[in-house]
Write a protein that binds this DNA or RNA. Structure first.
Length: 256
DNA sequence: AATACGTCCAACCGCGCAGCT
DNA sequence: GAGCTGCGCGGTTGGACGTAT
């Protein structure tokens, strides 16, 4: 059994023309995008649904914020990367108007150098079997140590903000690009005064992480929850303790 | 001015997950 | 429960563009 290729013969690839953009935007504005696979045919586009979705999500959506990342946005990305690792969609959910693809690009071109100056902005290209490794290991958080004072300053600034800014309510966004780990419902659920409509799976992850942290038998690297395990330093501990207290409060509420 | 090199970003690719049959 | 399908995700790439020599 072989999965049928997403994009068959006769499907156009490469950069989108303004006419294609116009067609796609016009169609979605009129009919929405209920079925991405059927959309290009219905809209009269010689693209695969996947390509249409990507174009819409990363470029044509009306709520996309374009332009360079502000300092605050960069710090937010760094801070969230500490927490989420390479789960770009989760990070994007906290940056309204920014897409996971854009954040990923900014990370690889700018921010990675700030956090990990010793690594080149672009690793030597290695031929792979394609991306596809949306595996757990791909989400391993990068634990790095800044080398210079200036870079350290930004690093520490971002880290400290991670604790002070435990209120993620500002993270709410209309972006549909949301990971399954941190769902729509989970977005904004870090508010200090309430935990509304929290995705159960998210908390199950969080709770299992709590157990893992408390247990002697830490899960091995590559465990399905390893992407949630950040490198704990004393500052991180404050953040996570605050976070886990919220989890415990939630457990109490759920028992009532 | 020409060339080499580096950077950035849009787009592609393949896979995992969830829902449906 | 197995198979199929669609969606969403993260990794990677190609080429345009900018900068240095």
């Amino acid at each position: 059994m072989v999965r049928a290729p997403c994009c068959g013969i006769g499907v156009k690839k490469g950069p989108w023309s303004p006419e294609e953009d116009e067609t796609l935007v016009g169609y979605i504005q009129r009919y929405g995008h209920g079925n991405w696979r059927a959309l290009p045919k219905q809209a009269g586009l010689l693209r695969c649904g996947k390509s249409c979705r990507l174009r819409w999500m990363n470029y044509l959506r009306p709520d996309i914020k374009r332009g360079t990342f502000s300092h605050e946005e960069q710090e937010t990305v760094i801070r969230l990367h500490e927490t989420f690792g390479n789960r770009w969609s989760a990070i994007a959910a906290s940056l309204p108007g920014r897409t996971d693809n854009e954040i990923k690009n900014v990370w690889h071109s700018h921010l990675k150098k700030l956090v990990s100056p010793n690594t080149s902005s672009r690793e030597p290209k290695k031929k792979t079997n394609g991306g596809g490794s949306r595996s757990k290991k791909a989400s391993e958080p990068i634990t790095t140590q800044p080398d210079t004072d200036s870079e350290n300053a930004l690093f520490v600034s971002a880290a400290s903000q991670a604790q002070s800014n435990s209120d993620f309510s500002s993270c709410a966004t209309d972006s549909p690009t949301v990971s399954r780990g941190i769902s729509d419902d989970a977005r904004g659920s870090f508010s200090s005064d309430a935990f509304p409509e929290i995705d159960e799976s998210f908390w199950l992850d969080a709770l299992s992480m709590d157990e893992s942290a408390a247990s002697v038998d830490l899960p091995p690297v590559g465990d399905e929850h390893s992407d949630l395990l950040v490198s704990f330093d004393s500052d991180d501990m404050v953040f996570w303790l605050t976070f886990l207290e919220g989890v415990e409060d939630l457990q109490e509420l759920s028992r009532i």
